[in-house]
Design a protein around this nucleic acid. Structure first.
Lengths: 255, 255
DNA sequence: TTGTGTGAAAGGATTCACAGCA
DNA sequence: TGCTGTGAATCCTTTCACACAA
């Protein structure tokens, strides 16, 4: 998941493991819920359960941030909310742009979770001239031509790509050229970016495929599958060079 | 722990690492693209680049599936597509239901990536009676009352939850009770499920928060941040028990 | 010669288990 | 007494480097 980042632990002990960083938002959410219920303190056990992890992991994670707990008592909810928010950089507001206002882009624009957690949608951008000016989630859609100006004028450093796969790399290039250094990519493509730019990917069909793998596993628990003890060594180098018409390799996934 | 796990017991090499499984869809996508361009073979180097990983990792990953390459040549594209599809369980069609047809649910319903990769949207389900019957992505929205019937009638084992956070656990419980054993959760909640049920989570705001963390890091590269070498040990146990009114802990994240 | 397949080494992440502090 | 904070052990993942097949 984590986009290849060549870690250079230059500056002292600034080394929170990537796996820990990925869980901080989880803790933050659980803590925010507790905070709203005015719960003053929480133990690692309780918080871990609320966040869906185990308590040893949680304590180890927190140990990278500092010693914010009280032995025999637990953690002060408000204090932890603040510390984690600060660590994640959420005490400042991040303006983001969303490019590609199709179904998904519109869904993202309407997603409340952004605004409430340190992010502000600075603009919605789409390539379709017919979309321009149309209000989506209270914001008028802007045309792609304005992309560069929007980025610079708003000091945007985080961009969300929700375009079709074909347009993603081009949009990415323009975002980066205009100054964006973090990209959240929903298009099913591998983006290539220069050093120093972070890309995170969310891929809906990949998640489903992973589920399918485990699902298949469950189904074939007793009924020994095709590949039980015999590795499917198919003699594909039969006569000539390439492969027979079809019969050796089933035609899956019709384009 | 069980001693006979690391050995070479009866069932041969039944153990594809989770990290590898998570990358198989990536390879599959890259291979499908090559297949569409009628490229007959690829090297680990080329395919790795296309998939956004390094070649050593890719070769190691493939080694868990079997020896599907040809030394000195590379991999047969069609053959690999088939093998990976089979491994992921995509040679069969998986009926899925999407629950919660708001912005996101509609986006998912319209997402082409599902249908083309072994998944079939069996039904769209929403709790709003006003939605019932409305066509979304060519399918009529069904009411939540029908959930159980839909699951059993279609033999659905994979469910997608795109409801608001508040409804997610309840929907999850009903899905599981009706026979669903894999869930893709888009709601920002931790779902609790019985043993044997897989849950994968996609959380939009979490991804952004992880980006923000790295973004902040970049910004503070030279301008030594608040927390440079001094751990922010705040003397929060001042006089009484709890914390002072406010002034110690800044009020971040206004609900 | 070329590029796969894979032991072995290195690096992370998770879990254990318990000392130590409130 | 109760729960945090953390070395140490374990497990998982990635990378290295090279034997070996085509």
């Amino acid at each position: 998941m984590a986009t290849g980042r060549t870690h250079r632990p230059a500056t002292r002990s600034r080394g929170i493991p990537e796996a820990t960083v990925a869980r901080l938002p989880l803790y933050l959410r659980a803590l925010t819920a507790l905070s709203e219920r005015s719960v003053p303190t929480v133990s690692s056990e309780e918080l871990a359960t609320a966040a869906g992890v185990n308590s040893a992991k949680l304590r180890k994670d927190f140990s990278y941030l500092g010693s914010y707990g009280t032995r025999g008592v637990g953690y002060d909810v408000e204090y932890l909310v603040y510390q984690i928010s600060r660590e994640l950089g959420l005490t400042q507001d991040w303006p983001v742009v969303i490019v590609g206002i199709g179904n998904l882009g519109a869904a993202l624009a309407n997603y409340g979770g952004f605004a409430s957690r340190g992010f502000r949608v600075a603009a919605l951008i789409d390539a379709d001239p017919a979309m321009a000016g149309k209000p989506v989630a209270g914001l008028p859609v802007r045309h792609t031509d304005e992309l560069e100006a929007i980025i610079t004028d708003n000091g945007v450093s985080i961009g969300v790509i929700a375009t079709p796969a074909g347009a993603a790399q081009q949009v990415c290039d323009r975002l980066v050229a205009a100054g964006v250094t973090s990209i959240l990519n929903f298009a099913p493509t591998v983006l290539s970016v220069p050093e120093g730019v972070d890309v995170r990917k969310v891929d809906l069909s990949i998640e489903l495929q992973i589920l399918a793998f485990h699902e298949q596993r469950k189904a074939g628990e007793d009924a020994a599958q095709t590949t039980a003890a015999t590795p499917p060594r198919v003699p594909r180098t039969a006569g000539g060079g390439r492969k027979g018409p079809d019969g050796d390799v089933p035609a899956v996934m019709p384009a």
